[in-house]
Design a protein around this nucleic acid. Structure first.
Lengths: 228, 228
DNA sequence: GCGCAACATTGATGCACAACAACTTTTTTC
DNA sequence: GAAAAAAGTTGTTGTGCATCAATGTTGCGC
């Protein structure tokens, strides 16, 4: 983890909603955002820690996950640039309900949480925009609840693969997560994640070349996901 | 399901936040809320249906649940008077992400969703209050995710019992839900819900008298819940 | 470029739980 | 208040998956 001087962060100004809104409201000067670079595997925020900043992911991929029991995690989401980190913990509680860790080198923009509050207390559109993103996250989690509880491993892995394809908006993509993490995303063991992947490969449903995955029969995958 | 004339609903005026806010804003006249009585088992809102009204539970208990696969439901929450029904679906999407059904006779207050939007577009405090309830719901679901995925049946049932005790704010309470529903709340089969209950009774952890349940050793129950 | 650690793979074993079945008890309905 | 439906109970069986184990492979630090 490494703090950047303000001059180093240009992309932030282009992607960060907080920045736009603060400027609109003429309180850009108060913003004084910090920009931070996290190395692969570093924790960006920790479950149960105080929420002191609004954090936006500017570059890189991160995983949002909860600590389960006996060292088993559940990955809720993969975060991409311009996503809020910790969005779901902005209102209700003052502590994070989950961890976020960098999957590769990540750059983030931190704004003091009190400034964020000021923004959404005083700027309606900003709050409404925040809420909309919020609502979507809730629907996601809901979907995950069903899936993790009632599908079996093939269905779960199929769903995860479709999720990733949709996330990266491509049927062929680099798998940024390990097999263990694919397991955590699907709430199954690492071993079974591997097993299902090779099954799918042998059945011609997906292609596997090193880190690259291609969904060759996405429709069949959807069926497998839908019927468990 | 039966519509009430406005004169019939007095409690609503005492409990309904929407009512207060509308009055505060001087648009009480626009409110024109509908008051509805649902019989036991009736659906108050249906998954995937359009969200046309903000609904507040005035009297009775309801269950919020998602349709799983092969007719297996997952109960997310039990709703009590003055809870918003469908709170989680107010922002993001235009359709409900879950069902709500009456556990006994329920009375609700319906306000047009556009009025609700008007309220929270124009009244900041109202929106913030809404958001706070929202945040809590999210934390609940999160907790459920862990629990349903990683605890085993004794832990799951223990958690459900503690949840109910906290909900009704009493260590002895009437079990308004059936064993099947206790199973759905804990994401286990009905049969195992029964089995665990009798186990707990035989071990002296709980008392069972008809519909009445009493937590005799809540601390032990907490341990069982915590360690799965 | 060597050595160690993280990641990946495959097979074998055990067990927790769902599903089934058969039955009793309670509640609802007309 | 009788018949039907819903809810509750207990024992048994089968299986999907986690876990363990052993080994191969890749990547990274120095």
């Amino acid at each position: 983890m490494r703090y950047l001087t303000k001059e180093n962060c240009q992309t932030c100004k282009l992607k960060c909603d907080i920045f736009f809104t603060a400027r609109e409201m003429g309180i850009e000067a108060e913003l004084a955002p910090e920009h931070v670079v996290y190395k692969k595997h570093e924790l960006i925020c920790r479950q149960n820690a105080e929420v002191t900043h609004a954090i936006i992911l500017i570059e890189g991929n991160a995983k949002m996950y909860i600590d389960g029991m006996n060292n088993k995690n559940i990955i809720l989401n993969i975060l991409l640039p311009s996503n809020y980190i910790g969005l779901l913990s902005i209102y209700g509680s003052t502590t994070y309900a989950y961890n976020v860790a960098a999957l590769n080198e990540c750059r983030t923009c931190h704004a003091d949480i009190n400034l964020l509050k000021k923004l959404y207390y005083e700027n309606h559109n900003f709050l409404l925009k925040l809420n909309s993103a919020f609502g979507n996250s809730v629907n996601n989690i809901m979907q995950k609840l069903i899936s993790l509880n009632q599908k079996q491993i093939r269905g779960k892995v199929a769903e995860s693969l479709l999720y990733l394809a949709q996330l990266y908006d491509a049927n062929t993509f680099e798998l940024t997560i390990t097999r263990k993490e694919l397991g955590e995303l699907s709430a199954i063991s690492e071993e079974n994640a591997v097993r299902v992947l090779t099954e799918f490969k042998n059945e011609g449903i997906i292609g596997l070349e090193g880190k690259e995955i291609s969904l060759k029969m996405p429709d069949l995958l959807k069926k497998i996901s839908a019927f468990g």
